[in-house]
Amino acid sequence: MSYRVAVCYGKPDDPSAFDDYYTSTHVPLAKAVPGLVGFTWGKTKSLDGSEPPYYAVANLYFDDEASLQTGLRSPEMKAAGKDVRNFATGGVTMFMQEEVQQ
């Protein structure tokens, strides 16, 4: 089983500033987390054309629970977590899950 941390960003005050900061500063911080085996992110769109609840969602993947716990406790994750306040003016919701292949 793999594990995923999802980071859901609310609509920022300045989407262009969010995009610039996120890609140039925050993504490199997040990708430095030990144990990370995959990282994706993207802007959201709803299926029915309404405003989606999140502006963007990032996914951080870990091979197993031990790697996830190591990553979550690392100084690199703490640095990335502290950095969120520098750009996420729309708020952030985070959760983790065990990924199940069917």
Rank of each mutant, 00 (worst) to 15 (best):
V27Y: 07
N59F: 03
A56D: 06
P34D: 07
V27G: 08
L47N: 00
V57N: 03
Y61N: 10
A56Q: 10
L60E: 06
V33E: 00
P34L: 03
P53M: 06
E65S: 11
N59D: 02
F62L: 04
K43T: 15
Y55V: 01
D64Q: 11
E65R: 15
D63Y: 07
S50G: 15
D64C: 07
Y61I: 00
Y55C: 05
K45P: 05
K31R: 15
F62V: 02
Y55S: 04
Y55P: 01
G35L: 01
Y61Q: 12
G42F: 06
S67H: 12
L72Y: 04
G71H: 02
T40G: 11
T40S: 13
E65Q: 15
V57A: 01
V57H: 02
A30G: 08
L72M: 14
L47I: 12
G35S: 10
G38H: 09
V37M: 13
S46V: 11
P34W: 05
T70R: 13
F62D: 04
V27C: 10
P28S: 11
D48A: 13
L47M: 12
G49D: 10
G49K: 12
L36I: 11
E51T: 15
Y54P: 03
A56F: 11
A32D: 12
L29Y: 09
R73C: 07
D64N: 15
E65I: 09
G42K: 04
L68I: 03
E65C: 04
S74F: 05
S67D: 13
L72N: 01
Y54D: 01
D64W: 08
E51H: 13
G38T: 07
D63K: 14
P28R: 12
Y54W: 12
G35C: 07
K31E: 14
K43V: 14
G49V: 03
L60T: 04
Q69P: 00
S67N: 13
K31I: 01
K45Y: 12
P75W: 03
F39D: 01
Q69A: 09
A58I: 07
P75E: 10
N59L: 06
A56W: 06
P34G: 08
T40M: 06
G71K: 01
T40C: 06
E76V: 07
P34N: 08
D63S: 14
T44L: 10
W41L: 09
F39E: 01
Y61T: 09
P53G: 11
K43A: 14
V27Q: 08
S46K: 09
S67F: 06
P34H: 09
G49W: 08
V27P: 01
L29P: 09
G71D: 01
L29V: 09
V57C: 04
F62C: 05
Y61C: 00
T40W: 05
D48S: 13
G42T: 06
G38Q: 11
G71A: 02
L68D: 00
V57P: 04
